[in-house]
Write a protein that binds this DNA or RNA. Structure first.
Lengths: 333, 333
DNA sequence: CTGTTAGCGCTTTCAT
DNA sequence: ATGAAAGCGCTAACAG
């Protein structure tokens, strides 16, 4: 069915190793190249990645492991990463851990079995235990978005603490002294940092922070429930800080339902700047993460490991965030 | 590094072919099995899928090809499909065509190169040209959601025409005689069918259908723009039918912005029943697609092709939809 | 610059 | 029930 080197050999008379060189950038004289070229075209030949991988120990595939395929942040990141890697000939095997530690560990085993050459992941569990297996097989890993406590490897993250701080500063500058925070579990690295950055800044100015529906899922529904709970009860908050995209949307839906207008009744400071944000009116004031840059850097970090010999040490790239000022935050006396 | 059959041979004394049989369900006597079992455990052995694939012509991987990784419908489908296939040992290589025909074709080439054993796709282009390459390599394909005009293969779709009709019937029963439809390009199979099903039923009752912002992107932004455009101008529509998830959300955002309340000012009939829908109040009346069932059937269709010898003919499974009645549609005189 | 040779790790007749 | 041997398609010394 599929043509092999042998078929090319039959047509051109060249040996297998010469043909191999053709496909691996060796030095051949032009006439040889051309001959092979036409044979390749005639035969509609494509090198067999499996066979190549068996010999050269390169599967030309990498694993992408994320907690939730339903999170726009995750899929956006993976879309970019996948795109870059594919351009370089790697295929991406995507797994989601479905927000479950056990599933996450199984997924790593699965990827190891598939002989991925590297793994790019947004880790679910903060310990790093899920990646032990990858380490044992010496498969390079790059983290995006979250750090791990017991596992040292390359990572691309943002300064989450500072992002929280920036949100607080902005709200303070607008006169807010009492804010609710709609956050996911504080044990999740990003959530914890963002909250602490915010709370820290707020309290150091004598302002008050209340966690709305602590330890909620960080989903639209979670944000919705937390915000609904908080705002339907008596409260003094003049603003709400939502620490990711889904939580921001959920909060807005809750406010809509309660008939609370922003920024008139309560100011909203959101997180992430994606399609839906662009469509909400009044426009949202948010912290924007450089998702494309994060993806690109992570992909490049991995590619460097894959394509170079040993690289000493590990790199953690910390990127800054940007505030996008919309009109969802009111200035109060 | 990684243990091979040879290592097992060293520990147990059995020949490679016996060991191979162990891993492929041959008949071995219990003692032999046990011996191999312990060696496997000791060595932390895992069979090398690449090597196995080279010989047996099975890569144990399938390609998943979708138009847009940002569409919740697409990712949900692929999440389910991926889960089922992974349970059966297959890895899924996910590609998105980024809503571009050329990219879609390249993706098929890429998957073919990666020797996927099958492809499950939500096709972008309706012609089927993008899958010609797969056909040439005799790679079975299963379509989800959309049919192709010039390519016969297995497919799992819903009765889109009927779904549109059902929406129309419901609105008619509530007294609506003039409705706007927020739709994506009618050239897209699902969009065309849903619209025609709706329009057909509506007009056969002397009611009027207007396409809001014809040929918009079927994204949140597209729905938003189309609905905004339509409703900010003078119009007679008492209801709006949105033909997918993103369009539904976009429409709602537009209504919110215009200060139009549903169902008081205008009734909303949506499509797809996902997390965000659950959170919108008043609750939406929608057509629900059996996404999980679609995914499962598609995965099984493919698995059957992969694991059986030749199967004659091709199967198109058409599933029904369900209406979820919320309170977003008003009864009018 | 090109060819020879020996595998990569596993499967698969064909013997025994 | 187990083993010997050949080979999947490609790569990588090593010669020439």
């Amino acid at each position: 069915m599929e043509a092999t080197y042998k078929d090319i050999q039959r047509l051109t008379g060249f040996s297998l190793s010469t043909i191999s060189k053709y496909f691996n950038g060796g030095n051949l004289r032009p006439r040889t190249k051309e001959a092979i070229e036409t044979a390749v075209a005639d035969l509609n030949f494509r090198v067999n990645d499996l066979a190549r991988g068996l010999k050269s120990r390169k599967s030309m595939s990498v694993g992408l492991l994320i907690p939730e395929l339903n999170s726009v942040f995750h899929t956006t990141i993976m879309r970019h990463v996948g795109h870059i890697l594919r351009m370089r000939g790697y295929s991406c095997i995507v797994c989601d851990s479905n927000m479950d530690k056990k599933t996450e560990r199984d997924a790593v085993q699965f990827l190891v079995d598939k002989m991925v050459e590297g793994i790019i992941t947004i880790p679910l569990d903060g310990s790093g235990a899920q990646l032990e297996l990858a380490k044992r097989w010496e498969i390079p890993c790059v983290l995006i978005d979250r750090k791990l406590t017991n596992f040292v490897t390359d990572a691309v993250i943002i300064d989450n603490f500072y992002a929280g701080k920036a949100a607080a500063e902005y709200l303070l500058s607008k006169g807010h002294r009492n804010a609710a925070v709609v956050s996911g579990p504080l044990g999740i690295y990003t959530m914890g940092e963002r909250f602490r950055g915010f709370e820290n800044e707020f309290s150091s100015h004598g302002a008050k922070t209340t966690l709305a529906g602590i330890e909620t899922e960080f989903s639209i529904k979670g944000g919705y429930n937390a915000a609904l709970d908080f705002f339907k009860k008596e409260n003094e908050a003049t603003a709400v800080f939502c620490t990711n995209y889904e939580l921001t949307l959920g909060t807005i839906m809750a406010l809509n339902e309660l008939g609370l207008k922003f920024p008139d009744d309560v100011s909203v400071f959101g997180f992430d700047n994606m399609e839906l944000s662009a469509v909400i009116k009044p426009s949202l004031t948010v912290i924007e993460q450089p998702m494309e840059q994060m993806s690109r850097l992570a992909a490049e970090l991995l590619l460097r490991r894959l394509e170079s010999e040993k690289i000493e040490g590990h790199e953690t790239i910390v990127l800054g965030t940007k505030m996008i000022e919309g009109s969802s935050v009111a200035k109060i006396n």
